[in-house]
């Protein structure tokens, strides 16, 4: 695979930033060692890590939406789902109703699909099993602890909630 310069630079910046945040010692020795390791990692992994526009996330409107999603929209959903599953686990009757449903998703970008799938996995009560593409439409298979609807469209609206619209603002 060929390395694109923009992809290598973006991966390098991400690796170096994480290195600095983890060490937090600004001596020349540490910074140079970090830069060399980051560069090596970037050269080897950038072609797997970045398939689309390398600096897409740094566009101002995309970045603002991303921050709003991570700090406000997602935590609210996380709170609701966590309280719900905690209640189910602690209630004497154990009211669970598990099933695997297939849900359509209207996202095209790989990153968008991965981000929504991971958001769904992180909210307790739903875990994404598989992403498949059929006739240009993407589907998730989701293990759901309380199947409230067997209709795939309705189930999709209940599981994804507001998350999908916000992710579409970030990744198309």
């Amino acid at each position: 695979m060929k390395n694109k310069p923009a992809a290598v630079i973006a991966t390098f910046i991400l690796c170096f930033l994480v290195w600095i945040l983890f060490t937090l010692t600004f001596t020349a020795q540490e910074l140079i060692a970090g830069a060399i390791v980051s560069l090596l990692v970037a050269l080897f992994t950038s072609s797997y890590f970045i398939h689309e526009d390398a600096f897409h996330l740094l566009k101002p409107n995309v970045f603002i939406n991303f921050i709003i999603y991570v700090l406000f929209i997602f935590p609210v959903e996380l709170w609701k789902a966590n309280v719900d599953v905690a209640k189910r686990a602690l209630s004497p009757k154990l009211p669970i109703n598990p099933g695997i449903v297939k849900v359509p998703v209207d996202l095209k970008s790989e990153y968008g699909l991965a981000m929504l799938a991971n958001s769904i996995t992180l909210t307790p009560g739903t875990i994404t099993m598989e992403i498949v593409e059929e006739n240009g439409q993407n589907y998730y298979y989701i293990h759901w602890i309380d199947v409230a609807s067997k209709n795939s469209k309705e189930a999709g609206d209940m599981i994804k909630g507001k998350l999908e619209n916000w992710i579409r603002r970030i990744w198309k």
Binding site: L78, V85, A89, L94, I96, L122, G125, T126, I127
Partner: peptide, 18 residues
């Protein structure tokens, strides 16, 4: 308390997130 591996996974997400 959960009956099978898959629902146990769901419950363990509680620990890993909140």
């Amino acid at each position: 308390r959960m009956p099978d591996s898959f629902t146990r996974m769901q419950s363990s997400t509680n620990i890993a997130t909140f």
